[in-house]
């Protein structure tokens, strides 16, 4: 019994620590004042409105959305067959391959970004959007491989064999039996990849060019120039968007079981 009260206090502090910044940001974004401040001065939605009016936010948001969706899709198109091959066939150096595929999780993004800029974009003059797309695909791939692999490992391979003995081809068995059974894992991988890409700063920082910026980079730049609460308003909006996605994901696929 003596441990109970201290435990509750610690837990309370922890929750305050995690939720506190969020509360502060949301409050600050509803301020009527001209500068980012807490506690907020008065109440207004003018900064929220300004976010939607700001042309630069609109275009960087569109770019970030585009990258997050298509880079993650590309990573899944590459990652699902790769995970399948790793889980079903014994290959030479399987462990090494697994490690290499997962390495971007371990290597700091800033190094990846610099390397891509220095050795890929600069020498070959690759279009900035294409470079961002390639970089984000590479960044998201390991997350996809991990989550999809975990789902595949839970699906016994004799289920595919059963499909084959009932007349299916190997490819047919993949689409008819494997894919439907890892569907939730694939959706979870998509969400995780999407958030990872959307949130990505270091790599995008190196690759963003004039007029082509992802949303987080745009926000950083905006804050350097202007100190009004619209960044707080934008952050709040993004936070509510993530909460919404997570809620739906948890509700329909039990997202937290996969990551």
């Amino acid at each position: 019994m003596t441990m109970r009260q201290p435990a509750i206090v610690v837990l309370g502090l922890l929750v305050a620590f995690l939720v506190g910044p969020f509360v502060v940001i949301v409050a600050a974004s509803l301020s009527a004042g001209d500068t980012l401040a807490f506690p907020p001065q008065g109440f207004s939605l003018r900064w929220v409105a300004k976010v939607f009016a700001e042309q630069s936010f609109r275009s960087s948001f569109a770019l970030s959305m585009f990258l997050a969706v298509f880079a993650t899709l590309a990573a899944l198109v590459l990652g699902i067959p790769a995970s399948y091959a790793m889980s079903r066939y014994s290959m030479p150096f399987a462990e090494a391959v697994r490690t290499v595929v997962s390495s971007p999780i371990i290597v700091p993004g800033i190094i990846v970004g610099l390397a891509l800029l220095r050795y890929l974009v600069a020498p070959f003059g690759i279009n900035v959007v294409v470079a961002l797309f390639l970089a984000h695909t590479a960044l998201v791939l390991p997350y996809c491989v991990r989550v999809v692999s975990a789902s595949l490992d839970n699906l016994r391979s004799d289920v595919e064999e059963a499909a084959i003995l009932l007349g299916s081809s190997r490819l047919g068995a993949f689409f008819r039996v494997v894919l439907p059974n890892i569907r939730n894992g694939v959706l979870a991988a998509f969400i995780l990849g999407f958030v990872t890409s959307f949130d990505q700063v270091p790599v995008s920082l190196f690759l963003s060019g004039p007029g082509v910026q992802t949303l987080p980079i745009d926000m950083l730049g905006y804050m350097e120039r202007t100190y009004d609460p619209s960044v707080a308003a934008l952050s709040s909006l993004l936070a509510f968007l993530s909460i919404g996605i997570m809620f739906v994901a948890e509700r329909f696929i039990g997202f937290s079981r996969y990551v």
């Binding site: 699906l155 004799d158 064999e161 009932l166 007349g167």
Partner: peptide
């Protein structure tokens, strides 16, 4: 898949995402 040999696995190997009817119908549909 071309042998006409049926195998009932030691572990059953049913298709978890399909109802019993569809499990049994799987090969017939193909």
């Amino acid at each position: 898949n071309k042998r006409s040999v049926g195998l009932v696995f030691q572990s059953y190997a049913l298709f978890p995402h399909l109802a019993v009817f569809e499990n049994v119908a799987f090969g017939l549909r193909l």
